[in-house]
């Protein structure tokens, strides 16, 4: 394994960089999109609820690979050119956003109905009540499951390997094929994924301890 790291370290590190970049963009993107669709799902407007429901049900029930390949092979043919890294990152963002929408929706809904009524009864608008009362309580409920989603997201970013996205898994496959030492290579790849996921895992634990319980 150490020879792999010594001889092909730069390829794997470049892959790690792409994986990190894709993960960060997908994390932010999926959080924004997921929260938006969570709000759709709990909206008073029926058509928004329907849109939210359809989005979540369709996206989360399609394999990530299919979504990523869709952006890689279908979008370039009919819409606009898109390279593997972009297609994979967009696919990852959309796929994860469906799960985040469900997590955020469940978090918001687990805040008692009375909290919203209490806020509305002094004249706060829906948005003010959400921002002041509901979100702060929902976030504490949502942080632990969200942490799981984010760790899954980093690991799921390996989908980029299938659309030539130059990520860690892509480079790992190339190194494994070039050296024939499949096990050692993937052990190194696994350790490099840990470099990304362990800090994330500890950060989430820290947040849970010092913030959620406050």
């Amino acid at each position: 394994m150490f020879t792999i790291l010594a001889e092909h370290g730069s390829a794997l590190l470049s892959g790690l960089g792409y994986t990190l970049a894709a993960s960060l963009m997908a994390l932010l993107g999926s959080l924004v999109i997921g929260t938006a669709f969570a709000l759709f799902e709990i909206s008073h407007r029926k058509w928004l609820r329907i849109i939210g429901r359809i989005y979540v049900e369709v996206v989360r029930n399609i394999p990530l690979l299919v979504i990523a390949l869709g952006f890689y092979v279908i979008v370039p043919r009919y819409v606009m050119p898109m390279d593997g890294f972009t297609a994979g990152t967009i696919g990852l963002t959309i796929y994860t956003s469906a799960f985040i929408a469900e997590t955020v929706r469940a978090g918001i809904e687990s805040v008692a109905v009375g909290q919203m009524e209490g806020a509305r009864s002094v004249g706060l608008t829906y948005t003010q009540a959400m921002v002041q009362i509901i979100f702060p309580q929902a976030i504490k409920i949502v942080v632990p499951p969200l942490g799981n989603q984010f760790i899954n997201l980093v690991k799921n970013s390996s989908v980029l390997a299938f659309v030539a996205g130059f990520d860690l898994m892509y480079e790992g496959k190339i190194v494994a094929n070039a050296t024939f030492s499949t096990f050692d290579t993937y052990l190194a790849v696994g350790l490099l994924y840990l470099v990304l996921t362990m800090p994330l895992s500890y950060l989430m634990r820290y947040l849970e301890k010092h913030w959620v319980s406050a």
Binding site: A112, S121, G123, L124, I133
Partner: peptide, 26 residues
Amino acid sequence: GMVFQHFNLYANKTVLDNITLGPTMV
């Protein structure tokens, strides 16, 4: 104003902030 059976105080705010939220925001 409305006073509820189950109080519906804002769980994420102190007693003082529960009272001041409406007058300051609204």
